[in-house]
Design a binder for these strands. Structure first.
Lengths: 138, 138
DNA sequence: TTAAATAGCTGTAGTCACTACAGATAGACG
DNA sequence: CGTCTATCTGTAGTGACTACAGCTATTTAA
């Protein structure tokens, strides 16, 4: 059996985060030692690995809750899992496109900045006047 | 003079957000009507435009606070503004790269999912076992 | 002129996914 | 046995808003 600190090291997940996952019902309540400390088994470790990996991939807590519940029912078709993943992928893709537009806009601003006084600084002027920039990032 | 609702429409910024910016000291306290309602002038509108545009470009409130203070001192060299913008641009670029790695990982998971039982679902298995995937997204 | 509808006021609490702390108890090691 | 580290619970803080409750101002139509 693992203490919460051992589980923390095994999964690279902070102790506080583990307790947080338990509080919101993402991790089940573990057994306790005689002195009321949490004791975890392999199933807890596997589940926490699953959660942390999903978080690293950007899934929201609610999405993970659903993935976990789907994963618990082996006999079901995995179409639902697939759909959830595909949806998440589309959101990531959209976020990338939006950030790329931002980066390009920042580059334009920096190109326009010839140095010298703030009064003529391209960055400040672009920030002050939205009309001057391509508005693709909205 | 503009009411808070008019300013809101003029800058596409919610009324609550305007009051929030005032509370955190990003927007100055405006004049008030006889009945204690906020009344804004052009300078307020320009400043709010600046703030909103900067937020759309992903600058944090603290970064904007600094940009505003730099912009207020016309005589200073704009190197500081440039540096702030460049730094932000690097962060955006890093975020893009990290998200692209996530997207690729999600694509790999989806390719591995041949349909059928959850028990053999590539998505669930990858989520359950971090070792199976390229770890570039960490 | 007055009633109704809309807009605005303050202050507090909620969001997400944690993170940090305070003050207490448990367990490990010499 | 003492000391040190780990763990316990509960609460509050983060960023950048957003939502709501219960009140007052202002505008518009009758």
């Amino acid at each position: 059996m693992l203490s919460i600190g051992e589980l923390s090291r095994a999964t690279d997940c902070k102790v506080e985060t583990i307790r947080y996952y338990e509080k919101i019902g993402l991790m089940p309540e573990p057994a306790r030692s005689a002195g009321n400390q949490r004791r975890y088994g392999e199933r807890h470790r596997d589940r926490l690995h699953f959660i942390r990996h999903s978080r690293q991939l950007g899934f929201s807590i609610e999405a993970i809750r659903e993935l976990l519940s789907l994963a618990d029912h082996d006999h079901q078709d995995c179409a639902a899992v697939d759909a959830l993943t595909r949806h998440h992928r589309q959101e990531v893709e959209a976020r990338i496109r939006s950030l790329a537009a931002l980066r390009d806009e920042l580059d334009r601003m920096l190109r326009d900045c010839a140095g010298g006084d703030i009064a003529h600084c391209g960055v400040i002027q672009t920030l002050a006047d939205h009309g001057r920039c391509d508005s693709e990032h909205i």
